[in-house]
Design a protein around this nucleic acid. Structure first.
Length: 551
DNA sequence: CTAGGGTTAG
């Protein structure tokens, strides 16, 4: 009972950034429920002996809690063992580490690691591999790499775990480095390795390399459903849907949901709607397939296809699935249909933080800042239903809504709330929005004081920050500091044409036409084109999506 | 007991 009531809280806090307050709450809750559990199931001294005799059975029990997806029970049981000073072994720890991973609370994992060090259970390859996995899944990449470095014996599983670390953190170049190291060390690759290699190729859009991996997959000839799914995903990401379809059609043997989902998603992302609908017609689409298809429609800004997906979702009776409704609502918001988004939002029974954030964003991106701010207010003040806390993405949506609609005071208030009321640390993106708001309001001193604030806090100075600063300087004719921002931006991203255009616009704004000409010739010499832009225009009362290309 | 494929917000 206690565990069940805990579960939603835990799930809600598995986002990438944990609020320290929430964290202590989680640990507090776990301790609290552990306390009750201990008394209710009374782990008496006879149970302790029982544990000691049957550690392998207890290990099995912990492992089955984890397998069932109930990490809280696993943790409670483990904690009871420790309190009873029962002898635990490496098997216990590996299961418990998986529980920590599912809870996504690295503090618990660190505790377990410490206990492993104390008992010497951390030395084996399997134990170290579980530690690598736990740290990387809890977001501590550095710790994961550290543990890997300490390993004296590394088998292919350990290497694969490290590979997954980098892929999880979206560091495909580093992942390729791991693959190279595996080659140097003559590690015999497994199908897991090939799977990760395909993921690397997909995110790097490395078509040729991926084709080579495809060759290895064929040679290996095992676990074809999983590897075929990865192949379909890879070919779709590099725009070769036909190859993806070939992989799918040539697959002998049984096909599961995932491979269908991957194919549907790939077809939609590449605007091959006909094939996508054909696949969905042959096998009943599940909610996941529709969700990923809707993301494709949003990316393509394709309202027509999105509406078709909506129809399919209604026919299949998925209208109560929050995740799917969120994807639908987001699609309508991105395609400019705020009222459709609103209808969907109102119909979601169990609104989560993503529902709220998508709706706020739908208002904001369609120039309806005041409604975005109002909805944010409503979210924060809501009494009925389960409390949903805004996270850093929610704040970003509100701030950007304020920026687009020139709501200076609301933006300032929101930025203050972020840290003071919700204990979140502003990301560079938050600062960029904030600087943008102040710059548009003509408050150039506020802009630079926000900048100094960032430097003091040690926030990363990203290209986005320099863009925001540069825009503010253009608007406010802040020549000197604008040149500084321009210099930093071009240093950070010398080959991005959109940034060169931005800098050139700054020089045009302050009347330095010599610099404008200079930048134009730089662009020409680098062979850079200005990327296509997207915009919505209203034609005969209909929103029309327009792509423009200028040189 | 450890590693792998499709799933919502920036």
């Amino acid at each position: 009972m206690i565990m069940r009531s805990l579960a939603p809280n835990l799930r809600q806090n598995t986002s990438s950034r944990l609020n320290p307050n929430h964290l202590s709450n989680i640990i507090g809750n776990i301790k609290h429920s552990f306390y009750h559990q201990t008394f209710r199931t009374n782990f008496s001294s006879s149970s302790v002996t029982h544990f000691r005799q049957d550690i392998s059975q207890t290990n099995y029990l912990i492992a089955s809690h984890v397998r069932r997806g109930d990490p809280v029970s696993a943790w409670i049981l483990f904690h009871s063992l420790r309190r009873a000073r029962a002898v635990v072994d490496a098997y216990t720890f590996t299961s418990v580490l998986r529980a920590c991973t599912l809870l996504h609370v690295s503090q618990l994992g660190i505790q377990v690691h410490a206990q492993m060090l104390k008992t010497g259970a951390d030395s084996g390859t399997v134990a170290k591999t579980s530690l690598v996995d736990m740290y990387s899944k809890c977001g501590s990449l550095d710790e994961a790499v550290k543990v890997f470095d300490e390993m004296s014996q590394r088998d292919v599983v350990a290497w694969n775990a490290l590979l997954s670390c980098f892929l999880r953190c979206d560091l495909p170049v580093e992942a390729v480095g791991v693959l190279r190291a595996m080659g140097r060390e003559n590690v015999e690759v497994s199908e897991f390795t090939l799977c990760s290699a395909l993921k690397c190729c997909a995110s790097l859009r490395a078509l040729e390399l991926g084709r080579q991996v495809h060759g290895l997959v064929v040679c290996m000839g095992r676990d074809m459903v999983v590897l075929s799914t990865a192949l379909i995903d890879f070919y779709s990401s590099v725009g070769c849907v036909d190859d993806a379809l070939k992989v799918f059609c040539s697959l002998k043997g049984s096909k599961d949901d995932m491979i269908y989902n991957s194919l549907v998603s790939g077809c939609v992302r590449n605007r091959r709607y006909g094939e996508a609908f054909r696949v969905m017609g042959s096998v009943r689409p599940n909610a996941v397939a529709l969700t990923s298809a809707l993301v494709g429609c949003s990316e393509n800004l394709d309202l027509w296809a999105g509406k078709q997906m909506h129809c399919v979702a209604v026919r299949q009776g998925f209208t109560r699935e929050t995740q799917l409704c969120n994807a639908l609502l987001d699609m309508y918001g991105k395609c400019g249909k705020v009222s459709h988004a609103q209808l969907l939002f109102d119909g979601i029974c169990e609104k989560d933080v993503i529902s709220w954030t998508c709706m706020i964003d739908a208002y904001g991106r369609n120039g309806r800042g005041p409604e975005a701010v109002l909805l944010f207010q409503e979210m924060r003040m809501r009494k009925e239903g389960r409390k949903v806390l805004p996270n850093s993405v929610t704040f970003l949506s509100v701030l950007s809504a304020c920026g687009h609609s020139g709501l200076v005071e609301e933006g300032k208030k929101c930025f203050k709330l972020l840290r003071e009321k919700y204990g979140l640390e502003p990301d560079p993106e938050h600062y960029a929005c904030y600087i943008d708001i102040l710059g548009r309001a003509g408050n150039i001193e506020g802009v630079w004081s926000a900048y100094h604030n960032m430097v003091e806090q040690g926030t990363r100075l990203t290209a986005g920050i320099w863009v925001a600063l540069l825009n503010a300087c253009s608007l406010n004719q802040d020549v000197e500091r604008g040149e500084l921002a321009a210099k930093h931006l071009l240093q950070l991203e010398p080959n991005k044409s959109s940034y060169i255009v931005l800098v050139s616009n700054f020089y045009a704004a302050i009347g330095r036409w010599d610099r404008v000409d200079e930048l134009r010739s730089i662009m020409r010499s680098k062979g850079l084109l200005k990327e296509a832009g997207n915009s919505w225009i209203k034609v005969l009362g209909f929103n029309q999506h327009v792509r423009s290309l200028s040189v």
